[in-house]
Deep mutational scan, measured.
Amino acid sequence: NQESVVAAVLIPINTALTVGMMTTRVVSPTGAPAEDIPRLISMQVNQVVPMGTTLMPDMVKGYAP
């Protein structure tokens, strides 16, 4: 099972992602793949992402898996 990126903390809208904001988990439906964490760092979210929420590609500005 592939791990997806999950918010480790509450991420406010327009916040640039840091490694400490993200964790990985096997979830369904799958979100952004765990191996993309290095690409996701410094990208901004376009909505509030509550802690424990799977990071879906459409939540991150300019990100395409």
Score class of each variant (00 low, 15 high):
residue 16 A to F: 15
residue 27 V to K: 01
residue 56 M to F: 08
residue 40 L to H: 03
residue 52 G to I: 06
residue 43 M to A: 00
residue 43 M to C: 14
residue 41 I to G: 01
residue 29 P to D: 00
residue 45 V to T: 11
residue 31 G to I: 00
residue 58 D to F: 15
residue 8 A to T: 11
residue 16 A to R: 15
residue 51 M to H: 02
residue 5 V to N: 01
residue 55 L to R: 02
residue 61 K to V: 14
residue 15 T to W: 08
residue 42 S to H: 12
residue 20 G to A: 15
residue 1 N to I: 13
residue 36 D to Q: 02
residue 40 L to N: 00
residue 55 L to V: 05
residue 13 I to F: 11
residue 62 G to C: 10
residue 57 P to E: 01
residue 54 T to R: 01
residue 62 G to F: 07
residue 16 A to D: 05
residue 42 S to R: 09
residue 57 P to V: 09
residue 39 R to S: 06
residue 43 M to S: 02
residue 23 T to N: 08
residue 37 I to K: 00
residue 9 V to K: 07
residue 18 T to R: 10
residue 49 V to T: 04
residue 46 N to L: 10
residue 17 L to R: 00
residue 21 M to L: 03
residue 4 S to A: 00
residue 29 P to R: 06
residue 28 S to D: 12
residue 12 P to C: 09
residue 40 L to D: 01
residue 34 A to E: 02
residue 62 G to Y: 06
residue 8 A to K: 12
residue 18 T to L: 09
residue 64 A to G: 11
residue 39 R to G: 02
residue 46 N to H: 06
residue 19 V to M: 15
residue 19 V to E: 12
residue 49 V to P: 01
residue 57 P to L: 09
residue 20 G to K: 15
residue 48 V to C: 15
residue 29 P to N: 02
residue 7 A to Y: 08
residue 8 A to F: 09
residue 64 A to F: 14
residue 14 N to P: 02
residue 59 M to S: 04
residue 24 T to Q: 08
residue 7 A to K: 01
residue 32 A to N: 02
residue 24 T to C: 09
residue 50 P to N: 08
residue 35 E to T: 13
residue 46 N to S: 09
residue 54 T to I: 06
residue 5 V to G: 02
residue 52 G to D: 02
residue 25 R to Q: 09
residue 21 M to E: 06
residue 23 T to H: 08
residue 63 Y to A: 02
residue 30 T to M: 15
residue 32 A to D: 03
residue 56 M to T: 08
residue 63 Y to M: 04
residue 48 V to L: 12
residue 46 N to M: 09
residue 30 T to V: 15
residue 55 L to E: 02
residue 50 P to V: 09
residue 48 V to I: 12
residue 59 M to N: 05
residue 57 P to F: 08
residue 46 N to V: 10
residue 12 P to Q: 10
residue 10 L to C: 13
residue 32 A to E: 00
residue 44 Q to K: 15
residue 9 V to E: 10
residue 14 N to S: 06
residue 37 I to Q: 03
residue 54 T to Q: 02
residue 48 V to T: 15
residue 52 G to M: 06
residue 15 T to F: 09
residue 21 M to R: 02
residue 58 D to L: 07
residue 50 P to H: 11
residue 1 N to Q: 14
residue 18 T to V: 09
residue 21 M to K: 01
residue 6 V to H: 01
residue 65 P to E: 10
residue 40 L to C: 06
residue 8 A to Y: 08
residue 38 P to A: 10
residue 56 M to D: 01
residue 18 T to C: 09
residue 51 M to A: 14
residue 60 V to S: 03
residue 43 M to L: 14
residue 59 M to F: 06
residue 59 M to G: 04
residue 57 P to N: 03
residue 8 A to Q: 05
residue 54 T to S: 00
residue 51 M to Q: 13
residue 49 V to E: 00
residue 45 V to Q: 02
residue 62 G to I: 04
residue 36 D to W: 08
residue 46 N to G: 02
residue 31 G to Q: 01
residue 63 Y to S: 04
residue 64 A to Y: 14
residue 22 M to V: 08
residue 54 T to K: 00
